[in-house]
Amino acid sequence: MFTIKKADYLFWTFMFLMTLLQLSDDLSFWGAFIYSITITLTLRVYVVYVVNRLANRYLKIDNSTKFVIYASITSVFIALFLTLQGYVIIRLILSERMGTMNEMVSLFFGMLMLSILISGVSYSIELFKQNVESEKRHQELKNNVLESEIEHLKTQLSPHFTFNILNNLHFLIRKDKEEALELLSRYSKILRYYVYESQNKWIKLDDEISFLKHYFQLEKDRSGEDLQISCQWNIPENQLMIIPFLLSTFVENAFKHVSAFTDKTNYINLNVFFKNENQLIMEIKNSTDTVLNSTKKQGVGLKYVQKRLDFSYLNNYKLDIMSQENKYSVQLQLNLNK
Rank of each mutant, 00 (worst) to 15 (best):
K5T: 10
M15Y: 15
M15N: 08
F16M: 12
F16G: 05
S24Y: 06
D25A: 15
D25V: 15
D26R: 09
F29V: 06
G31I: 00
I34K: 06
Y35G: 00
I37N: 00
R44C: 07
V45W: 06
N52A: 03
R53G: 10
R53D: 11
N56V: 02
I61D: 09
I61R: 14
T65I: 10
I73M: 11
F77H: 08
F81H: 06
V88H: 04
I90W: 00
I90A: 03
R91N: 14
L92I: 10
N102G: 13
M104K: 03
L107I: 12
F108T: 00
F109H: 02
F109M: 05
G110C: 02
M111R: 04
L117N: 08
I118P: 00
V121N: 02
F128D: 07
V132R: 10
Q139A: 14
E140H: 14
K142S: 03
N144R: 13
V145E: 07
E149W: 02
E151M: 13
T155M: 12
T155A: 12
S158L: 15
P159Y: 04
L172E: 02
I173R: 07
K175C: 00
D176E: 08
K177V: 13
K177H: 12
V195D: 14
Y196W: 15
E197K: 10
W202A: 03
E219S: 08
L227E: 12
L227A: 11
S230D: 12
Q232I: 06
N234C: 04
E237Q: 10
N238F: 09
E252Y: 00
A254G: 05
H257R: 02
V258Q: 06
S259F: 03
A260L: 08
A260M: 06
N269M: 05
L270I: 07
K275H: 06
Q279H: 06
N293H: 05
Q298V: 13
R308M: 13
L309P: 00
L314Y: 12
K318G: 11
N326G: 10
V330I: 13
L332K: 01
L336W: 01
K338A: 14
